[in-house]
Amino acid sequence: MLLPKIKSLLIAAAILPCFIQPVSAHVVWFDYENGEYNILFGHPEDGPETYELSRFQSAIVYDINKQILPFNLNQKQDGLSLTASKNVAAIEGFFDNGYFARLSNDEYLRITEQEISKYDNVSHNLKYTKAFYDWSDALTKPFNLPLEILPLQNPLALTPGESLLVQVLSQGQQITDNLTVEYLGQIVAKNPDGTFSIPIGIEGLEQPIEASYSLPQNGNLTISYETSLTAQNTSVPEPSALLGLAFVGLIALRKSNLLLSK
């Protein structure tokens, strides 16, 4: 689903400088907060950065049956966000970060497509993301993105200390070569079967899982794919449930006080 509305958004305050800058390992991801699915860009371990809003190209929002839901795209002071119905189970997104010429190991120059032939080492940086907020059999299937991280277990059901097993796919097919997977800023070792084990913390996945993969094209151009996976539990207890928990807590406290008074 293309987002033509982006073209009309004001982007002057968020335009990236078009001079020498590092570009590696940037990803795009969704972060749910207060009813909004914020679209973030950068290094997850360092926090989000400002970005040129028009580089976010498309999104698809799914319900629990993997049926497409309508959504609204919103401009915020620090970026973009999506809002949709309460039935959101998953979202995918695509961010085109444009062309960069590599000048040294740590320096890149943003260029236009017309300038590709002027440089020896150019990458086209395409970034994809998936986010899960619910789980079902329909959502276990690949989304057939050029690069995606596929969880082999329900990422929302694992407990602290367990590991989430994932594969990395390109157009639905597992890839293992020329591939880097990162989590919490660290490279994740590949299992013998080509999967990756991601440790689950106290609050589930603490940051997006990242993967990157480069595919050389003709001449001096390389397609650099980056992708991320997030999983967040957005459900909150009903007010009646909260009252019930409070009541149980009061009973426990009263019993404790009685024991102390004996």
Rank of each mutant, 00 (worst) to 15 (best):
M1Y: 03
L3Q: 07
K5Q: 11
I6N: 12
A12R: 10
I15G: 00
C18A: 14
C18Q: 15
Q21K: 14
P22M: 09
P22K: 11
V23G: 00
V23F: 01
A25G: 02
W29D: 04
F30K: 01
F30I: 07
D31G: 04
G35K: 03
N38I: 03
G42L: 02
G42D: 08
H43Y: 11
G47A: 08
G47C: 07
T50A: 12
T50G: 09
E52V: 01
F56L: 04
Q57I: 12
S58K: 12
I60P: 00
I64A: 05
I64C: 01
Q67R: 11
I68C: 03
L69E: 13
N74Q: 12
Q77M: 07
D78C: 01
L82W: 08
S85M: 03
K86Y: 04
N87K: 15
I91Q: 06
F94Y: 15
D96F: 13
L103P: 04
N105K: 14
D106C: 06
Y108K: 04
L109M: 14
T112D: 15
Q114T: 12
I116G: 06
S117W: 06
K118I: 00
N125V: 13
L126D: 00
K127V: 14
A131P: 00
A131H: 05
Y133L: 04
D137N: 14
T140R: 14
K141H: 11
F143L: 13
N144S: 11
L145A: 03
L150P: 01
Q153S: 08
P155Y: 09
L156K: 09
L156G: 05
A157G: 05
T159V: 10
P160W: 10
P160R: 13
G161T: 11
V166K: 10
V166N: 02
V168F: 07
S170Q: 13
Q171V: 00
G172Y: 08
Q173I: 10
I175K: 07
I175Y: 05
T176S: 12
L179R: 03
L179I: 09
Q186H: 12
Q186V: 03
P192F: 08
P192Y: 12
T195K: 03
I200V: 13
E203M: 14
G204P: 11
L205I: 07
Q207W: 03
E210G: 00
A211C: 10
S214I: 00
P216G: 08
N218G: 10
L229S: 05
Q232T: 11
Q232C: 01
T234C: 04
P237T: 02
L242W: 05
G244M: 12
L245C: 01
A246Y: 07
A246K: 12
F247Q: 06
F247K: 10
V248G: 08
A252H: 00
L253K: 04
R254Q: 11
S261V: 02
